[in-house]
Design a protein around this nucleic acid. Structure first.
Lengths: 346, 346
DNA sequence: TAGAATATTGACAGCGTTGTCATTTTAACT
DNA sequence: AGTTAAAATGACAACGCTGTCAATATTCTA
């Protein structure tokens, strides 16, 4: 019934170990032997037993994806990216949602990690930014790759990090608005625990400065990465008593921008005639609002695939930097209908 | 460094096997022995090795979730529901996105299933509805639970199915619209490969019939479960040349409804004054549109948790029906701002 | 072409559990 | 107390693979 490595070995007329070498693509197997074995593998439709490999080998054949992100689109993209790499490599993906604020969850998580003996972990923000988590993982001695907001050069030991340049993205979006004549630009920030929030804010400030526009604290709303926060933030920035006369709003991400759009709608504000709104990420969200969102495109599935690549490359112990792996991603501006020339409000 | 079952056995002064019995909650272990062992387990912080258990035992300690659904919210809910149950039981979750139309994917999937030796599978629509898949799984001899659209009574062998009564949901939504005075109600259907599509259509037709409203084929648009389809469907149903005078549209799900809303917006149609729109599922979508959607609430995370419950209960071989497990879920109407009294168009 | 160097293969012992079945202990009867 | 049945425990062999290291083929060197 079940085909084992022994059956293959018998059919191919070689030892168990040789079959093992072939399926693990180890060097020093003669081409001829390799072919014989592969034929036997195909003929019997042999599938190596993952559990046995995990048990016998030094590392296991599964990787984990760790996230604490309420955004379904983001999570799905991350999963699919890692998954596509896993499929190539014959690994399984084990998912670990994990609340970064909940201590119990963290312990559960560590417990899970320990018992699963995973080959490695892909960590997404904000967990990837938590020193406490990193320390724990180092202590356990498990391989991991971190997805971070920033640039490769900043951190010293960035060999196991993949960066998304949120600073540049925010800078570009802000410049886009400035080029449309906007001078009073609001920003509904995401969770302050996320590094992306400070990066995006910094990019925004830099753009203002580059164009001699003064930064105004009143234009900033400290929110979170959620639709509701977008609604609240926009309402706050736009309310009458607030004499900011804002003509554009940056949403912390697409979801926040969608919320801002919703608020504008409630207040009978015409987009983009009276107000421009932008997002970040270019998630499906940005195409499902009315009008569609101008945003910064960020291919999360590609990013996470590269994270997985890096993880596998490290797991294999290859010291040299794999040239194929992109370590810093820079989102690019996508102009849609939610931004337009600034109405003269001065 | 690594604590094994042997270490625990030594510390507790019992045999390896007795420890195994304790951690697997097998019967016929004296209370006293149980306590001694548990203390040792705690003291050493012992974590059973999943790979070893998988290898030695008859079934493994991981379950799979199989889906082919582009809707991120749906997938995430499903994952989280199953995951919460897995955590309780100390199992891992392996995810298997799988395109039902792509033959290669199906083969990959079967291959994966075979080699993983999963304890069981939770199948979501439309894969759960495909006889070909079911046959393959039966042949392999793996446990599975199917999530289906319909009612428990319909199918003979429904012991491994969890149902969502889409017929009832559509019936209720349609009656809601009828009660608001709507008589010409459009329906942008989802993919016809999904059973939910025909169930929802049937529920709609029944409601019309119950209220002596004749069914009109021209009010139906055969689309798919996507935002774009919602846009196209609504545009088609509402266009001038089409003299349907429709006053309400059922979206195949929330995403379709959001698309319909978008189309209405493009056509300058006021919601709900001129047109009512409804969705299905009550996903976050329905709260992020303007106006918010009237829809049928369907707790996908609860549903999938019950599917997992059922799977574990079957895996344990318990014959009797677990009373705690709900096998048919009926979505309930949630009235928001996208529906209103019918404008008199007669 | 012998002898050394190297490339290729194989034998065998684990990896950390659980299943099977034999053994011991306890409880339940005469 | 003496049997017998039942409950609790233990010994040991799998599970299917990989790591180690020894054995054998092959190629190279002089």
């Amino acid at each position: 019934m079940k085909v084992t490595i022994n059956d293959v070995a018998k059919l191919a007329g070689v030892s168990m170990k040789t079959v093992s070498r072939v399926i693990n693509k180890e060097p020093s197997v003669r081409k001829k032997t390799y072919d014989i074995v592969m034929n036997a593998v195909k003929e019997l439709n042999y599938q190596p037993n993952i559990a046995a490999r995990n048990l016998a080998g030094t590392s296991s054949f599964a990787v984990g994806l760790v996230y604490d992100n309420p955004n379904a689109y983001y999570v799905i993209d991350m999963q699919n990216g890692v998954l596509s790499r896993c499929k190539e490599e014959g690994y399984e993906l084990v998912i670990h949602p994990c609340s970064y604020s909940d201590d119990n969850m963290q312990e559960d998580f560590i417990t899970m990690i320990k018992r699963s003996r995973l080959a490695g972990l892909v960590l997404t923000p904000p967990l990837s930014e938590q020193q406490k988590i990193i320390d724990m993982l180092d202590e356990i001695g498990i391989q991991y790759v971190r997805l971070l907001s920033g640039r490769a050069t900043e951190t010293e030991n960035s060999s196991n990090c993949i960066f998304v340049d949120d600073f540049a993205a925010a800078h570009e979006i802000t410049e886009h608005l400035i080029s449309l004549g906007h001078k009073r630009i609001g920003f509904v920030l995401g969770d302050k625990e996320h590094k992306s929030t400070s990066e995006r804010l910094a990019g925004y400030r830099q753009a203002l400065q580059d164009h001699d526009i003064s930064y105004c604290e009143e234009h900033i709303f400290e929110g979170s990465y959620s639709f509701e926060s977008g609604v609240l933030g926009a309402q706050h920035l736009l309310k009458d008593s607030n004499k900011n006369n804002i003509s554009a709003i940056l949403g912390g991400n697409d979801e926040v921008a969608a919320g801002a759009l919703f608020a504008a709608r409630l207040m009978n504000i015409d987009i983009p005639a009276q107000l421009s709104i932008t997002g970040f990420e270019d998630s499906p969200f940005s195409r499902q609002t009315w009008p569609k969102l101008t945003t910064a495109h960020q291919a999360n599935n590609v990013i996470s695939e590269h994270a997985a690549r890096l993880l596998f490359s490290k797991a294999r112990g290859s010291r040299k930097q794999d040239k194929e792996i992109i370590s810093t991603f820079t989102p690019s501006l996508v102009i849609r209908q939610s931004t337009g020339v600034a109405a003269d409000k001065a």
